[in-house]
Amino acid sequence: MKHKEMVYLTPMPVRIWHWLNAFGIVTLCITGLQIRFPDYISVFGAYKAAIRLHNTAGAVVSVSYMLWLMYYLVVAKSLMKLYMPTLDDLKTGIFRQAFFYFLTYFLGKPNPHHSTPDSKFNPMQKATYLVIMFILLPLVIFTGVLLMYIAPLRELLLLLGGIKMLIGTHFLLSCCFTAFLFVHIYLATLGHTPLAHFKPMWNGWEEEEIDDGSEKTR
C-alpha cells in the first residue's frame, strides 16, 4: 500500500539562495546575450542599462553563493554529505540513475532514489551539482569580477592570458549554465507529479510516496 508523507527537505536559507540564484542567473544569461550581440538583441533598451543590470545580477549571484556556502559549511555542516558523491555513487549509483532516466522511467518503473534530508540528491544530481557549484559557478564569478575591473586588475589579467581568454571562458561558461538550466528545469518536472520537486524548493516540504507504513511525518 502506498501512502504520502511530508519530508522537510529544503531549509529556508537554501531556498532563498536558490531563487536569488535562479533569478540572477536567468537575468545574467539574457543581459549577457544582449551585451554580446547588441546588434541583434535589445531586451533591456540601452546597452548601458544591460551592463548595469548584468553587473548587479552578478553581484547578487556572488553574494547569494556566499550565503549558500556559509549555510552549508557553517550552519548545516552537511555540504560534503549532500554534495560529495560516494564511491558507490560513482561506481554504480550514477549508472543506475542514468539507466532509470533513459530507460526504466519510460517503462514506468519507480525512481531508485528517495530523497531524505540526509540524502537529498540522487548520484547524478550530486555529480552535476558538485561540478556546477564548485567549479563552474566559482569560475564564472571569478572571471566576471576580473572583467568588471579590467584596468585595476590588469596584472592578473595579463597573467591569465589576457582579456580575450577571460571573455572566452566567461562566455563558454555562460553557455554551459544555459544548457544546464534547460536540463535542470526539465528534470525537476520528473517527480511523481510535474510540480512535486518544485514545491520543496518553495516551502521546504516534499510530498514523498512511501511504500510501507513507517511514521516519519513531522
Binding site: F171, L172, S174, C175, C176, T178, A179, F180, L181, F182, V183, I185, Y186
Partner: peptide
C-alpha cells in the same frame, strides 16, 4: 561552440 553547448542542453528536454 557556445551555440552547440546550448543546443546540446536544449536537446535533452
Amino acid at each position: 561552440i557556445g551555440a552547440l553547448i546550448v543546443a546540446a542542453g536544449l536537446s535533452f528536454p
